[in-house]
C-alpha cells in the first residue's frame, strides 16, 4: 500500500466546500507527511472546522479530492473513513455523556467487531472473547491517558479538561493513523493547557500518529506544531514554520493582529 517514505499520508487537492452561497473552504490543498504535527489556524469562521468535516466525510466537497494513504476517500461516509484510519475530536465536546468513561472508549472498538449480533445476544465464546479483548484494550488505553480511575463514572460528570482528554482517548481507540484535533485546548486553564501539549506530543510518539490540529491558543500552536497553515475566509493565506508564520505580515493582519486586539480589549 505504501508507495514510498515520502508519500503523504493525507493529500487534499483543490477542495472546495460551499454552504448555499457561502464558500466556506476555497480551493484548499495540503500534503501532510507521516508523523507530522501540523497546525491549522485562522480567525473565527475561517473554515478550519469545515476542512475537518470535509476530511471526515461530514460534508461532501463541491470540488476537489481527498486521499488518505493513497486511497481516495472523497465523499465516503464518516464511519467508513474512520475505519480507514482517521479519527477526530470535536470543537464542542461531543461525548456520549450518559455512558461511562469506559463505554465511551469501548464504542470505538465496536467498528472492529467480528462476532455477529446473534453471537452477541447469545454470548457465544467468540463474542465473549472479543468483548474481553475490547475491555482490556479500553482499560489499558484509559490507563495510558490517565483516566482509568474514572472508568466507571458517567462521562458527562467529568471536569471539562478530562472530558477533552476522554474525547482524545475515544478517538485513539478507533486505532487511527491520522488524528484531527479541533481546538483541544479551548476552555482550559494554563496548567491544563501545558499538560495537554505534553500529552499531544506523547501520544503522537507512542501511537505513531500524524496529527492535524486546529487551535486558537497561539502558545499551543507555536509550541508543538512543526508546520502551520493559515486560513482566512476559506482561503489559505500562508504556510510555514511557527517562526515564519509569526513573522508573516498577512497573517499578522488577518489573524494575529485580531488576537492582539482581543487581548488588548480583555
Amino acid at each position: 500500500m505504501e508507495k514510498g517514505k515520502n508519500e503523504a499520508i493525507l493529500t487534499m487537492n483543490h477542495v472546495t466546500v460551499v454552504f448555499g452561497g457561502l464558500t466556506a473552504v476555497n480551493d484548499f490543498c495540503i500534503d501532510i507527511q507521516r508523523g507530522e504535527l501540523v497546525g491549522l489556524i485562522g480567525p473565527n469562521g475561517a473554515g478550519k472546522t469545515t476542512v475537518f468535516n470535509a476530511i471526515t466525510g461530514q460534508y461532501i466537497p463541491a470540488k476537489g479530492e481527498i486521499f488518505f494513504e493513497g486511497r481516495e476517500i472523497t465523499g465516503l461516509k464518516p464511519d467508513r473513513i474512520t475505519k480507514y484510519g482517521i479519527a477526530r475530536t470535536f470543537q464542542n465536546v461531543r461525548l456520549f455523556s450518559e455512558l461511562s468513561v469506559l463505554d465511551n472508549v469501548l464504542v470505538s472498538y465496536h467498528a472492529r467487531i467480528k462476532s455477529s449480533f446473534w453471537e452477541a445476544i447469545f454470548h457465544t465464546p467468540r463474542y465473549l472473547r472479543e468483548e474481553r479483548t475490547f475491555y482490556n484494550g479500553g482499560m489499558e488505553l484509559l490507563e495510558r491517558v490517565g483516566l482509568a480511575e474514572m472508568a466507571g463514572e458517567t462521562a458527562g460528570s467529568l471536569p471539562y479538561g478530562q472530558q477533552r482528554r476522554l474525547e482524545i482517548a475515544r478517538a485513539l481507540a478507533t486505532g487511527p493513523r491520522l488524528l484531527l484535533l479541533d481546538e483541544p485546548a479551548a476552555g482550559m486553564n494554563p496548567e491544563e493547557t501545558r499538560q495537554l501539549m505534553d500529552f499531544i506530543k506523547r501520544i503522537r510518539d507512542e501511537f505513531g500518529l500524524t496529527i492535524l490540529l486546529i487551535e486558537h491558543d497561539m502558545k499551543v500552536v507555536m509550541g508543538i506544531c512543526e508546520r502551520i497553515r493559515v486560513l482566512d475566509y476559506g482561503i489559505s493565506i500562508a504556510e510555514g514554520t511557527p517562526a515564519e508564520i509569526q513573522a508573516n505580515p498577512r497573517v499578522i493582519e488577518a489573524y494575529l493582529g485580531e488576537e492582539e486586539r482581543e487581548n488588548a480589549e480583555a
Binding site: T56, Q58, K77, P78, D79, T82, K83, A87, R88, F90, R94, L95, F96, S97, E98, L99, V107, S108, H110, A111, R170, A171, A173, T174
Partner: peptide
C-alpha cells in the same frame, strides 16, 4: 447520545 459522534467513531 450523539449520532454524529457515533458515526465519527466508526459506527454504521
Amino acid at each position: 447520545e450523539d449520532e454524529i459522534a457515533a458515526e465519527a467513531m466508526g459506527i454504521n
